[in-house]
Amino acid sequence: MTDARAQLIQYISEDAVFHGDFTLTSGKKASYYIDMRKLSLDHRAAPLIGQVMLDLIDGIDGVVAVGGLTMGADPIASAILHQGVARGKTYDAFVVRKEPKDHGRGRQVEGPDLNGKRVIVVEDTSTTGGSPLKAIEALEKVGAIIAGVAVVVDRATEAQAKIEAAGYDYFYAIGLDDLGLAE
Rank of each mutant, 00 (worst) to 15 (best):
A16F: 03
A86M: 15
Y11E: 09
A79D: 07
R37N: 09
K89R: 11
A46W: 06
G62M: 06
A6G: 13
D74K: 02
V17S: 00
S26T: 12
R44Y: 13
S40P: 03
L54S: 08
S31K: 14
D42V: 02
I60Q: 12
I60W: 12
S40T: 10
R5V: 07
I80T: 00
M71C: 14
D3Y: 08
M53Y: 06
S26D: 08
A4Y: 06
I12V: 07
I9M: 06
D15M: 12
R37K: 13
K89I: 09
D3P: 08
Y32L: 05
V66G: 00
S31E: 13
H19D: 04
L48F: 13
G88R: 14
K89F: 10
Q7C: 13
L48K: 07
K38I: 09
M53E: 05
P47N: 02
T23P: 04
A46F: 07
L54P: 03
T23S: 09
G68R: 01
V85R: 12
L54T: 06
G88P: 05
R87C: 10
V17I: 00
A16I: 01
D42M: 07
V52Y: 03
L39N: 01
K28F: 13
S31M: 12
A16R: 01
K28S: 11
D42N: 06
I49A: 02
D3N: 08
G68M: 06
G59K: 14
L41K: 12
L69M: 13
S26R: 02
Y11G: 07
L69K: 04
R44N: 12
A79T: 01
L69T: 11
I12E: 01
I49D: 01
L8E: 03
A65G: 13
I9Q: 02
M71F: 14
G68Q: 07
L69S: 03
I76A: 03
S40N: 05
I49W: 02
D55A: 12
A86V: 14
R87S: 09
G67S: 05
Q7M: 15
D58F: 11
V64Y: 03
R87N: 14
L24M: 06
H43T: 15
G50Q: 06
I80R: 00
A77V: 11
L54R: 01
